[in-house]
């Protein structure tokens, strides 16, 4: 019975990794679509919303079934607890991708201001954090998340910088208000996605060592 449980747990973890990568690709594609003003790509991100929601429901259901049927303990219990958090965080990351993709449609008609400022760089760093969080979850490599606090500080600084730059443009030329407001919102969404990566990291630490940490 234990063998059957561990096989199912392994599959659950594998499919949770796939879901997390799916959410990550929604976010990455949405920012690419924003930068390239690619409405078709943005449309494909929006279309993926239903799929990620189905995965969320199905994987959560499997977590609950494993708990109900096997009453897991110690690391097995911690893996499931962490998996539930990874599922939620991945769903949120994917949903922010969808929200950014919707913005692409709204502002694609006019050229970008200041090449979308630091958004591409910020997105790259956020996606790297998400990648490391997912790999840490997949392979129990907590060393990948050791510097998340510093990386999260960088993300916060970038969001603030985009905010200030946006305000400056808006004050200089009110015609930029719509686009700059959207950039500021996108920076805020990216920062939230980095927070979700940190949440995954905190839970991977718990899963692996039983120790609760808080990444600020």
């Amino acid at each position: 019975m234990a063998e059957k449980f561990h096989t199912e747990l392994k599959h659950l973890r594998k499919e949770t990794v796939a879901m997390a990568q799916f959410g990550r690709s929604m976010l990455k594609d949405s920012v690419d679509a924003l930068v390239r003003q690619d409405e078709q790509l943005a449309g494909s991100v929006v279309a993926r919303k239903g799929d990620i929601h189905l995965r969320e429901v199905e994987l959560e259901e499997r977590c609950y079934q494993l708990i109900a049927l096997y009453q897991p303990m110690a690391k097995d219990m911690r893996v499931i607890a962490c998996t539930l958090k990874v599922i939620t965080a991945s769903m949120r990351i994917g949903r922010y991708g969808k929200v950014i993709a919707n913005i692409v449609r709204e502002i694609a008609v006019k050229p970008h201001i200041s090449h979308t400022m630091s958004i591409p760089h910020m997105a790259e760093l956020v996606v790297e954090m998400i990648d490391d969080a997912i790999t840490a979850y997949e392979t129990d490599s907590i060393e990948l998340i050791a510097d998340f606090s510093t990386r999260d500080d960088t993300i916060d600084a970038l969001r603030h910088s985009i905010f200030r730059e946006g305000i400056t443009h808006m004050m200089e030329d009110p015609r930029t208000i719509t686009r700059c407001t959207h950039y500021i919102m996108v920076a805020r969404y990216l920062e939230r996605c980095a927070d979700h990566a940190c949440k995954i990291a905190e839970n991977v630490q718990y899963m692996d060592t039983g120790e609760r940490i808080e990444i600020h």
Binding site: H6, P72, M73, A74, K75, M77, T209, G210, E211
Partner: peptide
């Protein structure tokens, strides 16, 4: 003991290994 045992042997036993 049931959330995060200190010994690997305990871990392996309570997780049914």
């Amino acid at each position: 003991i049931f959330e995060h045992p200190a010994e690997e042997l305990t871990e392996n036993y309570i997780t049914g290994r």
